[in-house]
């Protein structure tokens, strides 16, 4: 048990030193990299290691006769979480999400320190000592708090109320609700039931399983599967149409959506927000192909009322592409990202 706790303590100290180094810019933030594709689990794993580390550290300090009071343990852990979110996770997390996480962490700390009556008493003790002010130091602290707390609250209020020159926050709808059907080049498509006509096997029959089996491998490299190279001239059916879709994509779409389909094309940063990142699991991976068909065809200008604030400058591609070209480019987007379109079974 002691060995386990010592190991935990070692991890805790190492982690804290690394974080402190990152905060003070002594160690570059990328020293321990967040690996693309594994970042969310890496973050949770790191936090787990820290919790184990702090438990070990606390144990070791108690064993060495230098126990850290429950009050400072709680405050320290909360401060650590705030600093971790601010300095460890990149790109920077928006304040609204950090505020949510910070509040939940505070609740967690409260639940931990007040889970048993004994712990709660230990946690409250320093606060009660200051309030009771039995010693000179505590008396001084009490007066300090009496003066500082109203100033602090006043400062926060002033800051919150002060008019700011920055652009207001927008609650953008990423997936505006599509219509039940859409009319493109004179033909009506029912979004719930329509299918991509080019999702076919070499024999020309609609085949979801065949096409799913030939998309690129997900993961860091997005590698093509063996014998599934669309640029092989011998291919028929799905892979042939993927190639044709790719050509259309690189003639029309990649300037904004990027050659890696991650929304970072040449012109991307001229727009705010930047174009959709298809490699993100929250975009096309969540949607039916017909949804993409509707969005591509109608563009930003065709967004419905509930799509407010209509923050999309995508042109209505029905004015530039044929229906077949739109379906093919969609086929390519799913193939390239390694995602499967949403279907209903």
């Amino acid at each position: 048990m002691k060995a386990l706790m010592s190991l935990g303590a070692l991890i805790g100290v190492a982690g804290l030193l690394l974080l402190a180094g990152m905060i003070f810019n002594v160690i570059p933030s990328s020293t321990v990299r967040l690996v693309e594709g594994y970042m969310p689990m890496q973050m949770l794993f790191e936090l787990t290691c820290f919790v184990a580390g702090f438990a070990g550290l606390s144990y070791m300090m108690s064993a060495m006769g230098m126990p850290l009071s429950r009050f400072w343990q709680g405050i320290g852990f909360w401060a650590f979480i705030l600093l971790y979110l601010k300095y460890r996770v990149y790109p920077p997390i928006p304040f609204s999400v950090r505020a949510m996480y910070g509040t939940v962490s505070l609740v967690a700390v409260f639940m931990w320190v007040s889970a048993s009556e004994e712990d709660w008493k230990k946690f409250k003790q320093p606060i009660m000592n200051v309030l009771d002010a039995q010693t000179g130091m505590n008396k001084l602290l009490r007066y300090m708090y009496l003066v500082l707390l109203p100033i602090l609250i006043g400062g926060f209020s002033y800051n919150a109320m002060m008019p700011k020159s920055e652009e207001p926050i927008e609650l953008r709808t990423v997936h505006p609700a599509p219509p039940a059907s859409t009319k493109v080049h004179g033909k009506t498509y029912t979004l719930q039931t329509s299918q991509n006509p080019y999702r076919v096997n070499p024999e020309g029959k609609y085949d979801q399983d065949f096409t799913n089996a030939n998309i690129v491998e997900q993961g860091m490299g997005r590698l093509m599967k063996p014998n599934a190279n669309p640029w092989d001239d011998k291919n028929q059916g799905y892979l042939k149409y993927v190639r044709e879709g790719g050509e259309i994509f690189f003639q029309n779409c990649h300037f904004c959506h990027g050659d890696n389909l991650n929304g970072r094309g040449l012109h991307a940063f001229a727009f705010n927000p930047i174009p959709a990142n298809f490699t993100d699991p929250g975009t096309i991976a969540q949607l039916q192909e017909t949804f993409i068909f509707w969005r591509v065809s109608k563009g930003g200008i065709g967004l419905p009322n509930e799509g407010f604030p209509w923050a999309s400058v995508m042109p209505p591609w029905e004015q530039h592409l044929t229906v077949d070209e739109i379906w093919k480019v969609i086929l390519f987007e799913y193939w390239h990202t390694g995602y499967y379109p949403r279907t209903w079974d």
Binding site: P40, R172, P273, I274, T283
Partner: peptide, 9 residues
């Protein structure tokens, strides 16, 4: 971008 590469997941 609109999605955070870590938390967006």
């Amino acid at each position: 971008g609109q999605q955070h590469p870590v938390l967006g997941n």
